[in-house]
Computed example of a mutant assay.
Amino acid sequence: MSTRTAVVTGASSGIGAATARRLAEAGFHVVLTARRAEKLDALAKELAADGRSVAVYALDVTDRAAVDAFAAGLDAYPPVHVLVNNAGGALGTDPVATADPADWRAMFEVNVLGVLNVTQALLPALSSSGDGTIVVLSSTAGLATYEGGGGYVAAKHGAHVIAETLRLELNGHPVRIIEIAPGMVKTDEFALTRFRGDASRAEAVYAGVAEPLTADDVADTVAWAVTRPAHVNVDLLVLRPRAQASNYKVHREQ
């Protein structure tokens, strides 16, 4: 295909990094964004060694001024056709009664306002491309709740609503809105961050689950969705491992 640009937020690790690899393999010029520049540089070096077209931009999606400056600089690249809103995360598992409002605020900032910031900033370019795609990486937490997940669930419901509302508001415009909602995905950092570095608690999330999803499973799904013909929209795709029937029903082997 002719050169097209895909912007991936939260591309320094996990699903974001895996998605960047998949889109680069699909022929996109991939713009890697995240806060940790050193990890982005390492990924960019890896992709460039394989002959992939890649650029790096250190970016905090919660900083609107920085996001606007980033969007303004994209004129130097081929037309932006794809935005993958992947940056996000969870903090803590406290019940609503005792949860730290600062944790809720941080989760809302990145999972909701981060998606809003980057989407608003890049929407003109995506629309003018004549064939734009916005991907929102939400979560099954955005579709159903569970105890101890109130703050994260609320934030991911917000991301889900952004995708759902955009699809209505952009009907008739040349921009698709795709939401991918993964369930249990085992990555190096998600659970570890949620439990503030407690490796034993993080590992317990996946205990006995034979095959939780991997970052590459999700990335493969994202790449498939964005490379469908332009008239085909994947509104919402829920992705879970076979062992997981819902947010709270998971088969664990003894």
Rank of each mutant, 00 (worst) to 15 (best):
W224P: 01
V82F: 09
A154G: 04
T3C: 05
P212R: 00
L213W: 00
V234P: 02
L23F: 00
N111G: 09
T62D: 05
T33R: 07
S2T: 15
P95Q: 11
A121D: 02
L123S: 03
A6H: 13
A24K: 00
V8H: 09
V161N: 12
G183H: 01
H251S: 08
R167G: 03
D217M: 00
D131M: 04
A223I: 03
A26M: 02
P79I: 07
T5L: 13
T214M: 01
H160Y: 03
L91I: 14
L113S: 03
G27C: 10
L23E: 00
V54C: 11
V61T: 12
V250A: 00
V209R: 05
K45M: 12
A44K: 04
L192W: 06
L74Y: 07
E109C: 05
T133A: 12
F108K: 01
A223F: 03
T93I: 14
A17Y: 11
L122S: 08
A141S: 14
A202S: 15
T221N: 02
K186E: 15
A243Y: 02
A49D: 15
A42M: 05
G150R: 02
T9P: 09
G197H: 13
V67I: 12
S200D: 15
D131K: 11
D103K: 10
E203Q: 13
L43K: 01
G130L: 11
V175E: 10
D100A: 13
I15M: 14
L143E: 07
V209D: 04
A58V: 07
G151D: 14
V84T: 06
A155P: 05
L170N: 08
H81D: 10
L32V: 10
N233E: 15
L91P: 06
I178S: 10
Y248N: 11
L213Y: 00
V238G: 01
A199W: 06
G172A: 04
A181Y: 08
S139V: 11
A48T: 14
T119I: 06
V209H: 08
V118E: 03
R21C: 01
T140D: 06
H81E: 13
T33P: 07
A90P: 01
S139D: 08
R36W: 06
A155R: 06
L168M: 14
A44Q: 08
S53Y: 11
A18Y: 00
F70H: 05
